[in-house]
Simulated assay, not measured.
Amino acid sequence: MQIKKAILNVYSDGASSGNPGPSGIGYVIEDAEGNIIFKYSEFIGNTTNNVAEYTALLKAIEKTIELTPKKVRFYSDSELLVKQLKGEYKVKSKNLIGLYQAVVSKLSLLNYDIVHIKRDNNKLADNLAKSAIKNGIRSFT
């Protein structure tokens, strides 16, 4: 499926039960009218919440690239992730450097914005990430 002229909104979230502990990711891709195009969740094993946040965004970016949109707005409730990607914070964690570099590399292929939102505005992606931890499986539609 390609959506070449579309403007997409992508919500991503990572969750960890224990930090580090069992972790899951989730993301939702919507069209400009708010219709869900794709949603995804995956159990990613034991890791930290920040690694889960970056992994969720990376997977969301990879799927978004497949859709070849005109413009994308990424939303995350992780202030650390958003501020690191905007260059406001440095990436100091050795666990995040490789993920950060992969995200930046993939983002260079898109016309995008990234926006920090409150957790209440990211409920579907959050529920997908938590569901992945609870069920320990991958799910997409």
Score class of each variant (00 low, 15 high):
Thr47Trp: 04
Leu128Trp: 04
Tyr89Arg: 14
Glu30Thr: 15
Tyr54Ala: 05
Leu58Ala: 07
Ile36Met: 02
Ala56Leu: 02
Lys123Glu: 10
Leu57Gln: 03
Lys90Gly: 10
Ile44Lys: 04
Glu53Asp: 04
Lys118Glu: 15
Val104Leu: 05
Glu66Ala: 05
Val103Cys: 09
Arg119Phe: 10
Gly98Val: 03
Leu80Val: 06
Leu109Pro: 12
Lys59Asp: 12
Leu57Ala: 05
Thr48His: 07
Val51Arg: 14
Leu85Ile: 13
Glu42Cys: 06
Lys118Gln: 14
Ser41Glu: 11
Gly34Ile: 00
Ile44Gly: 07
Ile29Pro: 07
Glu30Leu: 15
Ile61Asn: 13
Glu33Asp: 08
Thr64Ile: 02
Ile37Val: 09
Leu107Met: 11
Lys123Ile: 02
Asp120Tyr: 07
Arg73Ile: 13
Ala52Tyr: 01
Ser76Phe: 00
Ser76Tyr: 00
Ser93Leu: 02
Glu33Ser: 12
Val103Trp: 07
Leu96Ala: 15
Asp126Arg: 11
Asn50Met: 06
Asn122Met: 10
Tyr100Arg: 05
Ala32Glu: 15
Asn127Lys: 03
Leu96Asn: 13
Gly87Thr: 07
Phe74Thr: 04
Tyr27Thr: 01
Pro69Thr: 00
Leu85Tyr: 11
Glu42Gly: 03
Tyr100Pro: 10
Gln84His: 02
Asn46Gln: 06
Ala56Ile: 00
Ile117His: 04
Ile61Gln: 04
Val82His: 03
Lys118Leu: 08
Val115Gln: 06
Ser78Ile: 06
Tyr100Asn: 12
Thr68Asn: 15
Ile37Gln: 01
Glu30Phe: 12
Glu33Gly: 08
Lys106Asn: 14
Glu62Thr: 06
Glu42His: 01
Lys70Asp: 10
Ile117Pro: 15
Lys123Leu: 05
Ala52Trp: 02
Asn95Asp: 11
Asn111Lys: 11
Ile97His: 01
Asp31Met: 03
Leu128Gly: 05
Tyr54Trp: 10
Leu81Met: 13
Leu128Asn: 03
Leu81Gly: 11
Ile61His: 06
Val51Trp: 02
Val91Pro: 15
Val51Ile: 10
Lys92Arg: 13
Thr55Gly: 08
Ile61Cys: 07
Asp31Pro: 13
Thr68His: 12
Leu109Lys: 13
Lys118Cys: 12
Glu33Gln: 08
